[in-house]
Write a protein that binds this DNA or RNA. Structure first.
Lengths: 192, 192
DNA sequence: GTTAGCATGTAAGGAGTTACATGATTTT
DNA sequence: AAAATCATGTAACTCCTTACATGCTAAC
């Protein structure tokens, strides 16, 4: 078992669900999909693709002739695997590394799954914020203006994230309409 | 050379600059200081403290008798090291892992240093946002409402962060007063 | 007197990066 | 024909977490 992070595996399977691609292209798509924070090096990508082929989730086809490309296609097992990952609503779907990719493929998950993941994510963030607040209150020493500002900003960002999740949850529950799209239902978000 | 991340090293030296402490306590302070995202395990903390002692930046004193504590104190070399780290304005001070800790100890840096770090951080984020925007514009396929919302939210967060930095830079340049408005207690002088 | 929290540490391994190595194809 | 970019891959290394192991002390 060459180790594979669930996040990367899910991202690759999900992108290949739409269309076969080669590694280089997958990397570009991936970076655009989430911002992805980190840049995703080849040293991560290619071994991961290999392990997915080895486990039967992908087929690799080298293009004979032209450029030295290897085009990856999702197998039946790969599709099954992806469906399983998308349906996952446990803690692994909430954490910092995985939440973004789960959200990116929400269109393939059903309403209860989406709500469960959003709520799980929110409660995790709320729990973290509580810890942080308690920790700030406890250490009343060591407070220059910069430390305070850093803590204030961290707290504000966290609270904003929680509000975002709350709005998404409300939207899901109200109409099940995804946010922001060109839908019969206009989005409930109030951008300025 | 047991490897040590600069961020953790700087955080430990900085906290011990204020007062001697033992490891367990350092960990709690550290978590409260930044939110720190991750929780910082003992498996990281203790080896790092050991390596700082070995390199002469800390003195370790085991409390004989009572509880099995090891109290760490900053040495002269450790102070020098910390001053050097605080004065650092290169890329290492801007990146995601290190910026927070540099900001937390801004009270010990001089105005030009603070401004250089803030500007470096901002331009790094702006560059990342540009990449992200270009990447979004390029891949006009694969856009369901969720993907779009994720990208929109990511962009908005990034832009907000840039605005925050801009305000801080303006404040620094205008009066050198740290943010947060009214603080009757002026920040600590650089003479410890 | 037992549970909860304080306090320190080690070994193994996961998840990723950097730096290197190679070569084809397109652009200038 | 040179330079840039496309395209794939490996080896070494870094930083960190998890899981384990140990024992003290305060509180109930």
């Amino acid at each position: 078992m060459t180790s594979r992070s669930t996040a990367l595996e899910m991202a690759l399977l999900g992108l290949l669900h739409d269309a076969p691609m080669h590694g280089y292209e997958l990397r570009k798509q991936l970076i655009g999909l989430l911002g992805w924070g980190r840049v995703l090096s080849y040293g991560t990508l290619y071994p991961c693709l290999k392990s997915l082929v080895r486990d039967g989730f992908l087929d690799a086809e080298g293009t004979s002739g032209g450029r030295n490309r290897i085009v990856y296609t999702l197998t039946a097992a790969g599709k099954e695997r992806f469906v399983g990952l998308v349906a996952e609503t446990g803690p692994t779907a909430w954490d910092d590394d995985n939440f973004g990719i789960h959200f990116a493929f929400f269109a393939r998950a059903d309403l209860p799954t989406r709500v469960r993941i959003l709520e799980g994510r929110r409660s995790r963030l709320e729990q973290r914020l509580d810890h942080f607040r308690a920790s700030i209150a406890r250490s009343r020493e060591r407070r220059d203006a910069y430390t305070l500002e850093l803590q204030r900003h961290g707290l504000e960002s966290g609270e904003r994230e929680v509000r975002w999740l709350t709005e998404l949850i409300d939207t899901e529950r109200a109409g099940g309409r995804p946010p922001g799209g060109s839908n019969p239902n206009p989005p409930p978000k109030e951008t300025s």
